[in-house]
Amino acid sequence: MHYKFNESKLMEIIFFSQHSDSVNLPNGNGNITESINRSNTDPIKQINNPVVPCEDAYQDSEITEQSQPAPQERNTKPVRTQRKLKTELADDFTITESMQLWYSAQGFTLDAQAATCQWADAMKARDCKYLDWVAAWRNGMRNANKWAAERTSKQISTTQRMGASDGKYGPPEDYR
Rank of each mutant, 00 (worst) to 15 (best):
K45P: 01
Q82S: 09
P50M: 02
P69F: 01
E73D: 11
L85C: 09
T76Y: 05
L89K: 00
V51I: 14
V52H: 02
M99Q: 13
D42A: 06
P78E: 08
P78A: 10
K84W: 06
M99S: 09
E73W: 05
T81W: 05
I47A: 14
P69E: 03
V79Q: 09
Y103N: 02
T81F: 06
E55Q: 04
F93G: 00
T81G: 05
P53H: 00
F93L: 04
K86L: 06
V51C: 03
L101W: 12
Y58G: 06
E65S: 08
S61Q: 13
T76L: 10
Q72H: 14
N75T: 14
A70S: 07
R74L: 12
D92W: 05
S104L: 14
T94C: 04
Q59D: 11
R74V: 10
P78N: 10
V52G: 00
A57Q: 10
C54G: 11
P50E: 02
P50T: 03
T94N: 06
V51H: 01
E62Y: 13
R74T: 14
L101D: 14
M99F: 04
V51E: 02
Y58R: 05
Q100V: 06
I47D: 03
T87K: 03
E62A: 15
S67R: 08
R83F: 02
R74F: 12
N75R: 12
A90R: 12
E62V: 14
Q59Y: 10
I47S: 08
K77N: 09
S104V: 11
T76V: 15
V79Y: 10
Y58D: 05
T96Q: 01
W102D: 00
S61I: 08
Q82Y: 07
I44N: 11
I44M: 13
I44L: 15
L85G: 07
T94W: 02
E97F: 05
K86G: 08
E73C: 07
A70E: 07
D56A: 11
D92F: 03
L89C: 07
R74S: 15
P71Y: 04
A90T: 06
T81D: 07
F93V: 01
L101S: 12
C54A: 15
P71Q: 09
Q72E: 15
F93R: 01
P78M: 08
Q72V: 11
Q59R: 10
N48T: 03
W102Q: 01
P78K: 11
R80H: 10
T87S: 07
D56V: 05
Y103M: 04
F93M: 03
T87N: 01
P78Y: 08
I44H: 11
Q46N: 09
R83E: 09
P69H: 00
E88Q: 15
E65W: 03
S67M: 06
D56E: 12
R80D: 11
E73G: 12
D91H: 12
N75W: 13
Q68L: 12
Y58S: 05
K86P: 04
T64C: 00
M99A: 11
I47E: 04
Q59K: 15
